[in-house]
């Protein structure tokens, strides 16, 4: 009874939050609603007995993904008024097409039949035999579907390579600390007697003379070494 009540409460809040994610005008609010939706989804999973998934959802999605979203949203300056422009123009025909699709999908959903053993399966998320939730998930991910898991790893790797390839730039002007070069530098620091009372306008800025000519080049070379990723 209490389980059912909790389910309906969490489910209602989840859907409401999801709706707000899409409709709220302020993107920061959207992200916050998203976090709320995540929490509620995690609660639903707890009710279903999938405690590991629930925790993962909270840690990964709320702790990492949603916060990242928040960063991004705050950094980007999205002009929603302009985004809606096209929306207005395509509304009539888009609405018709969307409606047709919706009707068709409704027709399809209307033919839904539930398997007889569905309710039992739903309430028994673990394979039984004392196997824990975590272990069952591991079994599926790392044994049954290790092939897909590895491919997913490759997909992520590719995404990373892609992000680096497309955005990483080696700007010519940037200066980096090169410890080796600093240590190797010797005898270049020396005390010098400067006449007192003379303004900088007369003396100019005095810079130490560089001991070796190819010095800047060497710095750049070293930079090449370290800064690939």
């Amino acid at each position: 009874m209490i389980t059912a009540a909790a389910f309906y409460i969490f489910a209602f809040v989840l859907i409401a939050a999801a709706t707000m994610v899409v409709t709220s005008r302020n993107p920061v609010h959207s992200v916050l609603f998203l976090i709320l939706a995540f929490f509620n989804a995690a609660a639903l999973m707890l009710i279903a007995g999938a405690e590991f998934l629930a925790m993962i959802l909270v840690i990964v999605y709320v702790g990492a993904v949603a916060v990242l979203f928040l960063f991004v949203v705050m950094m980007l300056d999205i002009d929603f008024a302009r985004l809606r422009e096209g929306f207005q123009r395509y509304l009539p025909i888009g609405g018709v097409v969307g409606l047709i699709l919706l009707l068709e999908l409704a027709l399809v959903i209307g033919t839904w039949t539930t398997a007889t053993e569905a309710s039992d399966l739903r309430l028994a998320p673990n394979p039984g035999g004392g196997v824990s939730n975590t272990k069952a998930l591991g079994q599926i991910l790392y044994t049954d579907y290790v092939y897909l898991f590895q491919i997913a790893g490759l997909v992520l790797l590719v995404a990373m390579i892609g992000a680096i390839v497309l955005t990483h730039r080696r700007r010519p002007g940037t200066k980096r600390q090169d410890v080796a070069a600093q240590i190797a530098r010797s005898g270049s620091v020396n005390l010098e007697q400067v006449p007192t009372g003379v303004g900088i306008g007369e003396l100019g800025i005095r810079r130490p003379t560089l001991p070796e000519a190819p010095k800047p080049k060497q710095v750049e070379h070293a930079d090449h070494h370290g800064g690939h990723h």
Binding site: L154, V155, V158, G162, L166
Partner: peptide, 9 residues
């Protein structure tokens, strides 16, 4: 997906 992502890049 493994095909598409590199292609996008």
């Amino acid at each position: 997906e493994l095909l598409s992502l590199p292609l996008y890049v």
